[in-house]
Amino acid sequence: NQASVVANQLIPISTHLTLVMMRSEVVTPVGIPAEDIPRLVSMQVNRAVPLGTTLMPDMVKGYA
């Protein structure tokens, strides 16, 4: 099972991601792979992401 990136807190819209905001967890459905966490740092979310939500490629500007 592959770990995905999950929000560690509420991430407001247009926030630049930091390591503190993300954790890796095995979830269904599978989202952005956990090994991409370093790549996600300083990218922006294009919507509010609630605590515990799996980050999907379409939620992060410039990821997909």
Rank of each mutant, 00 (worst) to 15 (best):
N1Q: 12
N1K: 08
N1L: 13
Q2A: 15
Q2I: 12
Q2M: 11
Q2R: 06
A3W: 10
A3F: 09
A3M: 10
A3C: 09
S4K: 01
S4T: 04
S4W: 03
S4I: 01
S4C: 05
V5T: 06
V5M: 02
V5D: 02
V5N: 02
V5G: 02
V5C: 06
V6E: 01
V6Q: 03
V6N: 01
V6D: 02
V6H: 02
V6L: 07
A7G: 03
A7N: 00
A7S: 11
A7Q: 01
A7R: 02
A7L: 03
A7Y: 03
A7F: 02
N8G: 06
N8Q: 10
N8E: 07
N8P: 01
N8S: 15
N8R: 09
N8A: 14
N8T: 11
N8V: 08
N8W: 04
Q9W: 09
Q9P: 00
Q9K: 10
Q9F: 13
Q9C: 10
Q9V: 11
Q9S: 11
Q9D: 07
L10Q: 15
L10C: 15
L10A: 14
L10Y: 14
L10E: 15
I11P: 01
I11R: 01
I11Q: 01
I11W: 02
I11T: 00
I11S: 01
I11L: 08
P12T: 08
P12W: 04
P12Q: 07
P12K: 08
P12M: 06
P12I: 04
P12F: 04
I13S: 13
I13G: 09
I13W: 12
I13C: 15
I13Q: 13
S14G: 12
S14T: 09
S14M: 14
S14D: 15
S14E: 13
S14Q: 12
S14F: 15
T15H: 05
T15L: 04
T15G: 06
T15V: 08
T15S: 11
T15Y: 15
T15Q: 08
T15C: 07
T15R: 06
H16R: 14
H16Y: 14
H16F: 15
H16K: 13
H16D: 06
H16M: 14
H16L: 13
H16A: 15
L17T: 00
L17D: 00
L17H: 00
L17Q: 00
L17G: 00
L17E: 01
L17A: 00
T18P: 00
T18E: 07
T18H: 04
T18L: 08
T18N: 05
T18V: 06
T18Y: 03
T18Q: 11
L19P: 07
L19E: 06
L19N: 06
L19D: 05
V20S: 14
V20C: 13
V20Q: 12
V20M: 15
V20D: 09
M21K: 01
M21H: 09
M21C: 04
M21V: 03
M21L: 05
M21N: 06
M22T: 00
M22G: 00
M22A: 00
M22S: 01
R23S: 06
R23V: 05
R23A: 06
R23P: 00
R23T: 06
R23M: 05
S24L: 05
S24I: 08
S24Q: 08
S24K: 10
S24T: 14
S24R: 08
S24P: 12
E25P: 01
E25N: 09
E25Y: 08
E25I: 06
E25H: 07
E25A: 13
E25K: 09
V26H: 12
V26D: 15
V26T: 12
V26N: 10
V26Q: 12
V26W: 09
V26R: 05
V26E: 15
V26G: 05
V26K: 07
V27I: 07
V27G: 03
V27W: 03
V27K: 09
T28N: 10
T28A: 14
T28S: 14
T28D: 15
P29S: 04
P29V: 06
P29Y: 04
P29H: 05
P29R: 05
P29L: 05
P29F: 04
P29C: 07
V30E: 15
V30I: 13
V30Q: 15
V30H: 11
V30P: 13
V30W: 13
V30S: 13
V30L: 13
V30N: 12
V30M: 14
G31C: 03
G31V: 02
G31P: 00
G31D: 02
I32Q: 01
I32R: 00
I32W: 00
I32F: 02
I32K: 00
I32P: 00
I32V: 07
P33R: 10
P33E: 04
P33V: 08
P33K: 08
P33I: 10
A34R: 05
A34V: 10
A34F: 07
A34P: 05
A34W: 06
A34E: 09
A34H: 06
A34S: 13
A34C: 08
A34Y: 07
A34N: 06
E35S: 11
E35I: 10
E35G: 08
E35A: 10
E35V: 12
D36R: 08
D36E: 13
D36P: 01
D36V: 07
D36K: 09
D36C: 12
D36G: 05
D36L: 10
I37H: 01
I37W: 03
P38Y: 14
P38Q: 13
P38F: 12
P38I: 11
P38V: 09
P38W: 13
R39F: 10
R39M: 10
R39T: 14
R39W: 09
R39S: 10
R39E: 06
R39K: 14
L40A: 00
L40E: 00
L40P: 00
L40G: 00
L40S: 00
L40Y: 01
L40N: 00
V41E: 05
V41L: 13
V41R: 05
V41W: 03
V41P: 00
V41F: 05
V41N: 03
V41A: 04
S42C: 15
S42D: 13
S42H: 11
S42K: 13
S42Y: 12
S42A: 14
M43C: 09
M43H: 07
M43T: 04
M43R: 09
M43P: 00
M43L: 11
Q44A: 13
Q44D: 02
Q44C: 12
Q44W: 05
Q44I: 11
Q44F: 07
Q44G: 04
Q44M: 14
V45Q: 00
V45S: 05
V45I: 07
V45T: 11
V45D: 00
N46Y: 11
N46R: 11
N46C: 10
N46A: 09
N46I: 15
N46G: 06
N46H: 09
N46Q: 13
R47V: 12
R47C: 08
R47E: 08
R47N: 07
A48F: 10
A48E: 14
A48Y: 11
A48G: 09
A48M: 15
V49R: 01
V49Y: 03
V49C: 07
P50M: 08
P50R: 11
P50C: 08
P50V: 07
P50I: 05
P50Q: 10
L51M: 13
L51P: 09
L51G: 10
L51K: 12
L51R: 11
G52P: 01
G52Q: 01
G52A: 06
G52T: 03
G52H: 08
T53R: 13
T53K: 09
T53A: 14
T53Y: 15
T53I: 10
T53E: 12
T54S: 04
T54Q: 03
T54C: 05
T54I: 09
T54Y: 03
T54M: 03
L55P: 01
L55A: 01
L55S: 00
L55Q: 01
M56K: 08
M56H: 07
M56T: 12
M56S: 06
M56E: 07
M56N: 05
M56P: 01
M56Q: 13
P57N: 05
P57C: 10
P57L: 05
P57V: 06
P57Y: 08
P57T: 05
D58G: 12
D58Q: 12
D58R: 08
D58Y: 14
D58P: 06
D58N: 13
M59R: 00
M59E: 01
M59S: 06
M59I: 05
M59W: 12
M59V: 07
M59H: 09
V60R: 01
V60P: 01
V60C: 03
V60D: 00
V60K: 00
V60S: 01
K61L: 14
K61I: 13
K61F: 13
K61T: 15
G62A: 08
G62V: 04
G62N: 12
G62R: 06
G62T: 06
G62P: 05
G62S: 10
G62C: 12
Y63T: 03
Y63L: 05
Y63H: 04
Y63W: 15
Y63A: 03
Y63G: 04
Y63C: 04
Y63E: 04
Y63I: 04
A64V: 11
A64I: 12
A64W: 06
A64D: 13
A64K: 12
A64N: 13
A64P: 08
A64R: 10
A64C: 15
